[in-house]
Simulated scan of single mutants.
Amino acid sequence: MKKKLLAALISVAMVATLLAGCGGGGDTTTTDTTTDAAAETEETTDAAETEETADAEATTDNSGLHLEIVSKGLQHAYWQAVLNGVNSKAEELGVTVNFVGPDSESNIQQQVQQLETALNANPSAIGLAALDTNSVMDLLQTAVDSGIPIVGFDSGVPGAPEGAIVANCSTDNLAAGGIAAQEVYKLISDRIANAEGTVRIGVVAQDATSESVVNRGLGFIQEMASLVADSGKTVGMASVSNERYVTDSGVEVNDEADVVIEVRVPASVTSELSAADASAILEQEDTIAIYGSNEHSANGIITANENLNKCGTGEGQVIAAGFDSGASIMQAVRSGVFAGAVTQAPVAMGEQLVETLVKAANGETVEDIDTGCQWYTAENMDDPEIAQNLYE
């Protein structure tokens, strides 16, 4: 019996040896089978991990989490759209949220008080869009000492001490302002090239303190200056321009340049003063374009144009552009008063903010999120990809 078994084993070994010597085909088949098996195993593992993650997220009980969110205001349609995104995601994740903002985006002290109240509520996490970082430095330290994570949104909390802000959910405002400049330049490049004297481009800015507003203005100025310089023309800032925009843009004051960029900032944030600034720019005969760096400023241009009727895309009209959405700006774009505008994604920003706050509250690692922007015109504003980011 043992001899028969030994003979059988020897026969099997000989057959295996012969097969191995018959070229590479057998090896290839074996390798492919192994690879396929490994791939199937990896796919199965990935699927199992994904399912486990989904199950974990589904079963996570967030009902004990309370979030405080301090915005820059509630008066603009933009903040209402952010709030809609916040409420939608909060309901989905089962967390409670208190969303507040000052009566005006120039009321820094009121926001400071609201942030202090938010900290006193001992929340799981705080969302903050700071009007002025310096004004909340002490409160940021209080949050760190209390172990309360803060997530910045919109313009975030620029210049905050290291570790005070765990992540930001915001638009890259410099890049967004640059997009507006690129689109406007396409429409005025021939007028700049053929001009025999100075031409003027106006920028209406709500303030010189809010980082998002400032960066949208700076992004526009710097990109426009670069485009003009590349065309062989000289560019300078108007002597009446706001000092911060002159200093931070790096564009020297020169009222006699081929292209003069004039920046106006009101003494306080009111619709009347912003409309007056826009009028002062539009009334100058050499103005060929004007840009409002947020909803408030863009609305100021619209109000000024109602009396002056200077803006449009027709021959000799001033090319106007805005930033943000809102009913008035959308109508201005649709009617041709504005050539176009840049919109953020406020609803998505609100949703992403809540998701990030919940993760931070649960001790998870969080990262900065660029919430994006798009240039919209009368031709594309009804496209689903654009329309989802427009808010009234």
Rank of each mutant, 00 (worst) to 15 (best):
T96D: 09
L174V: 05
E49S: 14
T59W: 01
S274K: 00
I179V: 09
A387I: 11
N299V: 14
T31N: 07
V199C: 11
G177L: 01
Q110N: 09
T371G: 10
G64F: 07
A143C: 11
V253D: 04
L115E: 01
E367Y: 09
V347P: 06
D27F: 13
V269K: 02
E91Y: 05
S271M: 09
S210D: 11
E57S: 12
A58P: 11
G372S: 07
V269Y: 01
F338L: 13
A276K: 08
V318E: 03
I188Y: 09
P384R: 08
D55T: 15
N294F: 09
G372I: 01
E49K: 14
D370S: 11
V100I: 15
A58G: 13
N120E: 05
G152Q: 06
E392C: 06
V86T: 06
A289H: 14
K359M: 08
L128F: 04
Q222L: 12
G101R: 08
N98E: 15
S106D: 15
P384I: 13
T30Y: 12
V358D: 13
L308V: 07
L308Q: 12
M137V: 15
K2M: 14
V184G: 07
A332M: 01
T44E: 10
Q317L: 07
G26Y: 15
E43W: 10
I150F: 07
V97R: 10
S268P: 03
E211Y: 12
P102M: 10
G23V: 04
N107D: 15
P102N: 12
P266T: 00
F338E: 02
S271Y: 04
P384W: 03
L140N: 07
K2Y: 12
G64L: 04
S11H: 01
N134Y: 08
S124W: 01
V366S: 00
A176N: 00
S212L: 00
V144S: 05
S11F: 10
G94C: 10
E285A: 15
E105R: 08
D190L: 02
L139V: 02
E57K: 13
D145N: 14
G197W: 00
E306I: 05
D383H: 06
S135M: 11
E262F: 01
S11T: 13
G101P: 06
E223V: 13
M14N: 06
A160Q: 11
T44S: 14
T33L: 10
V246P: 06
V260F: 02
I290K: 00
N380S: 09
A332E: 02
K359V: 07
L93T: 12
V354H: 05
Q80W: 03
E243A: 12
V95H: 03
E379W: 10
A205D: 02
D277S: 05
D36Q: 12
V246M: 06
A345E: 06
V358N: 10
Y185S: 04
P346K: 09
N98S: 15
A47C: 12
A121V: 00
D277T: 00
A280T: 14
D324N: 14
A289W: 11
P149S: 09
